[in-house]
Write a protein that binds this DNA or RNA. Structure first.
Lengths: 334, 334
DNA sequence: CTGAAAGCGCTTACAG
DNA sequence: CTGAAAGCGCTTACAG
């Protein structure tokens, strides 16, 4: 636990000089510097980040707020964040909020007090006023996966377009009765995916059948129940568009348990492209989100903000999602 | 950004008194305390954790070191850690090391210098001398998922026993040619799982066939290739014991791609019980690891250590894993 | 180029 | 019960 004083003593200089030699921002006599470095090595000196942070008012730490790291979308995002953070000398604090805004506020308050230099939120909702407040206070904030209006920097995909494209693909392969298994529509992202679905149908002159619009909005709801209930009612779609891969997995399970085949009887398209999705039965055709890249970019952006870059206006970075075609969709010869 | 001085001024007392009123550890006049609390509220004062940490030599922060949060075993562990950490007023820093010992050492060195009060490692290997060193220095350390000899506290399952039980189940359901798809045997945990396999076969008087011992040790190797290669060689097991669920998924995919059915032709048992495993086709029979609980217990243990509890000797906490029987194993009427 | 001093925001022995 | 002082380990204007 050598301190700067120990190093100074050993190198025969003052602590100030040690500090300067280490910072590199101030000219220091070459030979002095060498002596300091020598002592640093000998003592295995590591500056105390706390003291440094207290003095400088920053800690090189960022808070990453996710709904739940167990939701398979977020590990890759977190990994992207952490990789660029580390590379730039930052450390990341992981916070799970379970979509609970009060819990999130508490967390943010706790971390904010000079603990953390900025936040990445993967939890944004329309009601997330605390995020706006942070931003207004001048606190560096960036959003990922979910965005809020245009007022806060965000790294997201174009959910509307991706969903539109996925449903168009289903239509172009001969599907006419396309069911959607949607998530929590209090989230913009799921509303956008729904709009993509709606417009794709509309553009093809297909009406939207209320019976084919399913909900799987709960925390661990993967749509199995909703799809099974639909089937049991005798409603038979020729395709299911699931707005997440877990929901696609739930839908496939329900279809099979009901005694139908995927994709021969019902095609299924997912959204996410999780690691396992290529290994499902059948391998899942799905919208691939570049989750790692989104995390990485969010971290880059945040670190720029922390380093004092003042962009004229918040920027919404769109990263490219793309439909990955595997085997869960049958080309129907209508 | 009110500081303790602002509060003191407003309450008409000294900063020392504010500090004492807030700590609760020292008697303070009731009325004075009220005035202080009043001022705290009015100013929305939050103590600066950095300053506090600098003074007290602790930060209420723990480092969680995992190989890769994208490996689906770790999110649940992380969640368990974070939940109990938060409850006890701690914050968790997430570190991914990709099994790279040098990267890990760097990380640990960086965090150690009073940044972090203790570590939870999910990355332990036999070569992890730095973990031992930390421990020897008196730094609070606990291991989770993987353990090291008996010298460091750890929260793990009995991998040998769980694996033994799984293979016994396969034997008791009439399987005779049981293939194992094993992971990286430089990890104790995979060696233990292998031993369980070996002993179960031995106890049943079944020889171990080298052709049925498969390796899927690489980072993203889920065994698809190894199983497919075996099948193509004309080696046909009646069951596959996969030592992780991702490997079970890879094995199932390979078996099906080869034109065989699961479980009619080949049964499959996994290990982990991931969230999706119940929704695979067929729903996977697998050893369920209580990952969340393991994380939670590891955090409890670590926080006890941080709070100065000095157990006579390191403790290896065994949590219970259990075989969950679903539909990927066929009872064969031999 | 370098040292002595002040200060970041707290806590805690030391007096009273 | 309470205040003034010292100190945690750094950094950085201020002199020289």
């Amino acid at each position: 636990m050598a301190t700067i004083k120990d190093v100074a003593r050993r190198a025969g200089v003052s602590p100030s000089t040690v500090s300067r030699a280490l910072s590199g921002r101030v000219p220091v006599d070459k030979e002095t510097k060498e002596r300091v470095m020598e002592a640093v090595r000998a003592l295995n000196y590591k500056p105390n980040v706390l003291a440094k942070g207290l003095k400088e008012g920053k800690t090189n730490t960022i808070g990453l707020i996710v709904p739940n790291i167990c939701n398979p979308v977020f590990p890759a995002v977190a990994r992207g964040v952490e990789d660029v953070a580390r590379e730039r000398g930052f450390t990341v604090i992981l916070c799970n909020t379970d979509e609970n805004i009060e819990a999130e506020k508490d967390y943010v308050e706790k971390l904010q007090k000079r603990w953390v230099d900025g936040f990445i939120f993967a939890t944004a909702r329309e009601e997330s006023h605390h995020i706006l407040e942070l931003k207004e206070k001048g606190f560096p904030v960036v959003l990922v996966v979910r965005h809020m209006a245009e007022v806060v920097d965000a790294v997201v995909i174009d959910n509307y377009k991706s969903s539109l494209e996925a449903v168009r693909y289903l239509i172009s392969t001969g599907h006419r009765r396309i069911c959607i298994v949607n998530g929590d529509t209090s989230l913009t992202l799921y509303r956008e995916r729904f709009e993509g679905y709606r417009h794709a149908l509309e553009a093809a002159g297909l009406g939207m059948e209320p019976d084919l619009v399913l909900d799987a909005a709960g925390r661990d709801d993967n749509g199995y129940g909703a799809v099974m209930a639909m089937l049991k009612k005798g409603v038979l779609p020729d395709a299911v568009f699931a707005t997440s891969d877990p929901k696609a997995i739930g839908a496939i399970r329900a279809i099979k348990d009901y005694g139908l085949r995927v994709p021969e009887d019902v095609s299924v398209v997912g959204f996410d492209d999780l690691d396992i999705s290529a290994f499902l039965d059948p391998p899942l055709t799905t919208v691939s989100q570049p989750l790692y890249e989104m995390g990485a970019r969010a971290a880059q952006r945040l670190i720029s903000l922390i380093n004092g870059e003042k962009p004229d206006k918040p920027q919404m970075e769109l990263v490219q999602a793309k439909l990955v075609i595997r085997k869960s969709v049958k080309v129907r010869g209508y």
